[in-house]
Amino acid sequence: MKVVRHFSLVELLIVCSIIMILAALLVPALNQARSNAKSTICLNNQRQILMILQMYGMDHNEIPIKYWSKALLETQYVPPSDNVSLFCPTWYPPNELGNHHQTYGMRQIEEEVHSFVNVQTPSTHVLIADSIRLNPDDPQDGMKQYFRFYGNTGQHMNRVHCRHQRKANVGFMDGHVESCSGQELENFGCPKYAY
C-alpha cells in the first residue's frame, strides 16, 4: 500500500518564513543594483553630452549656458527624436517642471557663454551636473538650464541635485565624469550648494 505524505502546517509555515527572509535579504540588494545601473546610465549620458558640447564649442567657439540643450537640439547636434541622453534616468520631475531642461544643468559663470580656451584647469572645472530648479514658476527664469554654486533663495534656486545615493554626477570641462559628494565638490573649489 502506497503512503501519501502531506506537509504539516508547521512545515509549511517554516518554508514560507524562509522564503520571506530570503526575499527580504534580496530586495534591497536588487534595488541597490538598479540604482547603481541608473547612476551609470546617467554618467554615460553626461559623457555623451560633454562630447557633443565640445563639438559644438569647436564649431561655434563658445557654449551657451542658459539654453544649452535647446541649442543642441535646434542645431541637430542632438536629434530631437533621439534626445534620451538629455534625461537623467533617476529623476522624474513633476509635469509642471518641463522636460530635459530640468535634469542636467550647466555651471553658471559671469559670462553668458563657456569657452574651452579660457579655462585654466579643465580637469577640475565642473561644467555640467545633475541639477534641479526649485522655482519653476519664476517668469524671469523661464527654462534656463544652469546651476549656481552659491545661495539657495530667490534668484539662486537652481541647484546641483545629489540624487544618486547622496552624490551628484558631474561632468568636467576636460570631458571626464565623476560621481561626487558635496564635500568632494567643495574640494574642487565649488562652495557648498547641493540640495
Rank of each mutant, 00 (worst) to 15 (best):
D137A: 11
H125G: 01
R133C: 01
V119T: 14
N118D: 14
Q120S: 12
I132R: 07
H114A: 10
I109V: 14
A129D: 04
H125A: 14
S131T: 12
S115Q: 11
V117S: 14
T124F: 07
V117E: 14
D138G: 00
L127N: 06
R133N: 06
S123T: 10
T121A: 05
N118I: 02
A129W: 05
S131L: 03
V117R: 12
E112T: 09
F116R: 01
S123W: 08
V119Q: 05
V119C: 12
A129I: 03
S115H: 13
H114G: 06
T124C: 05
E111M: 08
F116M: 05
V119F: 12
A129S: 15
P122Q: 04
I132W: 06
E112D: 13
V117I: 14
T124P: 04
T121Y: 12
N135Q: 03
H125T: 13
Q120E: 14
V113P: 01
A129E: 03
I132V: 09
L127S: 07
I128E: 08
V117A: 12
I128S: 07
N135F: 02
E111N: 11
R133E: 00
I128H: 06
E112G: 01
E111L: 10
T121I: 08
V113F: 15
I132P: 01
P136D: 06
V119I: 15
D138P: 02
S115I: 04
H114Y: 13
I109D: 04
N135E: 05
D137L: 08
V113K: 11
Q120I: 10
F116G: 04
N118W: 03
D137Q: 08
V119E: 12
V126L: 15
H114N: 09
Q120F: 10
Q120C: 03
I109K: 03
I128V: 15
I109R: 11
I109S: 08
T124E: 14
V126D: 06
R133P: 00
S123C: 06
T124A: 10
I132S: 02
P122I: 07
N135T: 05
S131N: 11
E112Y: 04
I109Y: 03
D138M: 01
S115R: 12
Q120V: 12
